[in-house]
Amino acid sequence: MPRIVDHDQRRAELTAAVWSLIREQGLAGVTIRNLSQRSGWSSGAIRHYLPNREAILGFAAGQIGERAWERVQSVPASDDPFQDFLNRLEVTLPLDEAGRVWLEVWLAFVGAAVSDQDFADAQGVLYRDLNTIFVEAFEQFARHGWLPAHTPQAAATEIHALLDGLSVHLLLHQINPAQARTTLEAALSRMLIRPEPSA
C-alpha cells in the first residue's frame, strides 16, 4: 500500500528548516546541500518540491506572507472595532517568539531586496498583501466616520511605516514590547476618532 504523504506537513518542515538557515547564516547560507543537512531530507526529496536555490528562496519569501496573513486572521473579533484592529496590528510585530522568527527572515529579505530585483519583487508581494489589509480596514473605519483627517491609503501607509520601524527596533532590542505597544496604540488613537453617539 503506497505511503500517504502529508504535503502540508512537508511544507511546514521545509519552512522551518529554510528559515532556520536564513536566521543563522543569512540568504547566502541557503543551498540544497545545507537544507538537506538541516532538514534531514535527501537532496532528491528537496528537489522534488524545490528544484534549485532560487525556488527555495522564493518559497521562503512566500511563506513569510502566508504566516503574516495567518497571524492577522487568527485574531478573534469582539464588539470593539478599535481594539480588534489594534490587536491585528500588534500580531505583525515581533512581540513573541513566532513573530520574531518570521520577522527576522523578513529582515533578511529586506536587506537583499536593496540590490536584488527578484528579492525586491518578493518583498513587494508581502508589502502589498499587508497594505491591502490595512487599506480595507481603514476604508471600513472611514465609512463609519472614524477617520476624519486621513484617507484610507494615507492612514495605511503611515501605520505600515510605523510597524516596519517598530519591528526593526524590536529585533535590534532598542525598544521593548511594552514600548512598541504603547507607541502603536498612541498612533492609532490619533488616526481613529470614535464618533460621538447620535443624540
Results as ranks from 00 to 15, higher is better:
Phe59Lys: 09
Val72Asn: 03
Thr182Ile: 08
Arg47Gly: 03
Pro197Ser: 10
Arg11Gly: 00
Leu89His: 04
Ser43Leu: 03
Gly65Arg: 08
Glu54Cys: 00
Ile46Pro: 07
Leu107His: 13
Phe82Ile: 05
Arg33Phe: 12
Thr15Pro: 03
Leu57Ala: 04
Leu130Asp: 05
Ala108Glu: 15
Phe82Asp: 04
Leu107Tyr: 11
Ala120Thr: 01
Val110Tyr: 14
Arg11Met: 11
Pro148Asn: 11
Tyr127Ser: 06
Leu147Thr: 06
Arg88Phe: 02
Ala187Phe: 05
Arg53Ser: 07
Asn131Asp: 03
Arg190Trp: 01
Pro51Thr: 10
Arg71Glu: 12
Arg38Ala: 05
Gly99Lys: 07
Val135Ile: 14
Ala120Met: 09
Ala142Glu: 08
Asp80Gly: 00
Glu104Phe: 00
Gln73Asp: 02
Pro51Gly: 11
Ser42Ile: 02
Arg23Ala: 14
Arg10Tyr: 01
Trp102Met: 14
Asp129Leu: 14
Asp84Thr: 04
Gly29Pro: 12
Ala137Gln: 13
Ile159Met: 09
Thr92Gln: 10
Gly62Trp: 01
Thr31His: 03
Ala98Ser: 14
Tyr49Ile: 07
Ala154Lys: 13
Leu166Ala: 07
Leu172Thr: 07
Trp146Arg: 05
Ala17Val: 10
Trp41Pro: 00
Ala178His: 08
Pro76His: 12
Arg11Phe: 05
Arg100Phe: 01
Ala137Met: 08
Asp129Asn: 14
Ala60Ser: 12
Leu171Val: 02
Gln174Cys: 08
Gly26Glu: 12
Leu192Pro: 07
Pro152Arg: 07
Glu104Tyr: 05
Tyr49Pro: 06
Asp121Leu: 08
Arg38Lys: 09
Ala28Asn: 07
Ser115Met: 09
Ser36Asp: 05
Ala108Ser: 15
Pro152Thr: 09
Asn176Lys: 12
His150Ala: 01
Gln117Gly: 00
Ala60Val: 01
Arg181Ile: 07
Thr157Gly: 03
Glu66Lys: 12
Trp102Glu: 05
Thr157Phe: 10
Asn131Lys: 11
